[in-house]
């Protein structure tokens, strides 16, 4: 670490300008908006924390959405990361099939979330979709998928894993390239098994990439919106009503920017808290 205000600021300045202007200013406006309420004519006035207290103590849907969002994230995060990591480990070495499989795993990521949602809504059609075609082929009973309060949220998880695992695999692949070959050679001489090498060399030296994927993936998943908007509209019976969808409805349908911003600010808080733990856990601290 080099102690230099001048050099440090020189390198971060361009990014600082861009982020400050196009991200921090609008985010600031949005957070301040959560302390205000707007009449339908567009006049807005300061209300302090009223939007928050309403959400916490009176709003009939907030807590339901809060728990659903939490459960969804707690399941989908580790699942995606585990699958992405396994895929990256399997495809790290250059063999004749490596390129092919990497590209196949990456395919779903090349389709936007909106289009992926449309595709899966028809693949998982409760009566005639491709997925039910598979089930009946193997003699299994057809499933309602998104049309069932018990299954809809897990279908969202499934959809997200399908779409995102290949994406996060890419980051692990990049991170794996930073691990020096010499360590594996040394381990080979000691006769270490593949599992030992993975556990003792790969995973510890992947911690910084791991921290990155963990934090970024957490943020992405807490902000899941497109499949809810396109497929379930929060249903059936509120079972997929993620917080982002609640916020969206407030912002663009109910014209209630205060509530919308309060929800996204709460989400920001939750994501930050999770990130803090994730940084701690991976020991890839905030400060090295």
């Amino acid at each position: 670490m080099f102690r230099s205000n001048r050099a440090g600021w020189f390198f971060i300045l361009p990014a600082f300008v861009f982020l400050g202007l196009f991200k921090i200013v609008p985010i600031g406006v949005s957070v301040l908006e959560s302390l205000r309420q707007t009449t339908y004519t567009g006049r807005s006035y300061f209300v302090g924390f009223e939007n928050y207290t309403y959400l916490f103590f009176e709003d009939p849907t907030f807590w339901n959405s809060f728990w659903i969002t939490l459960i969804y994230s707690l399941v989908v995060n580790p699942l995606i990361i585990l699958i992405a990591l396994v895929m990256a480990l399997l495809l790290n070495e250059n063999r004749f099939f490596t390129k092919f499989f990497r590209t196949v795993f990456f395919l779903p990521t090349a389709i936007s979330f909106a289009v992926v949602s449309v595709i899966w809504s028809v693949v998982l059609d409760p009566h005639y979709g491709l997925a039910n075609g598979f089930l009946t082929l193997f003699g299994l009973p057809a499933q309602p998928f998104f049309a069932s309060t018990a299954q809809a949220l897990w279908c969202l998880v499934f959809l997200n894993v399908w779409r995102s695992a290949g994406y996060w695999m890419m980051y692990f692949l990049a991170g794996l390239q930073n691990i020096p070959e010499s360590l594996y050679q040394a381990a080979d001489i000691d006769g270490a098994s593949a599992w030992t090498k993975t556990r003792k060399i790969t995973l510890p030296l992947l911690s910084r990439t791991f921290a990155f994927v963990l934090v970024a993936n957490t943020a992405f998943n807490f902000l899941t919106f497109a499949p809810v908007y396109i497929i379930t509209k929060g249903g059936p019976r509120g079972s997929t009503n993620l917080l982002m969808y609640e916020s969206y409805k407030s912002a663009f349908v109910n014209l209630d920017m205060g509530r919308a911003s309060a929800i996204t600010t709460i989400l920001l808080g939750i994501i930050l808290i999770f990130s803090l733990f994730e940084f701690k856990w991976t020991k890839a601290g905030f400060e090295y």
Partner: peptide
């Protein structure tokens, strides 16, 4: 580098992808 405002900047970097675009 260690410089003044570094932690603040890193914090800014982090929150830019933690806020949904819709908001």
């Amino acid at each position: 580098f260690a410089f003044r405002g570094k932690n603040l900047f890193f914090f800014i970097v982090l929150i830019t992808f933690m806020v949904p675009f819709e908001s």
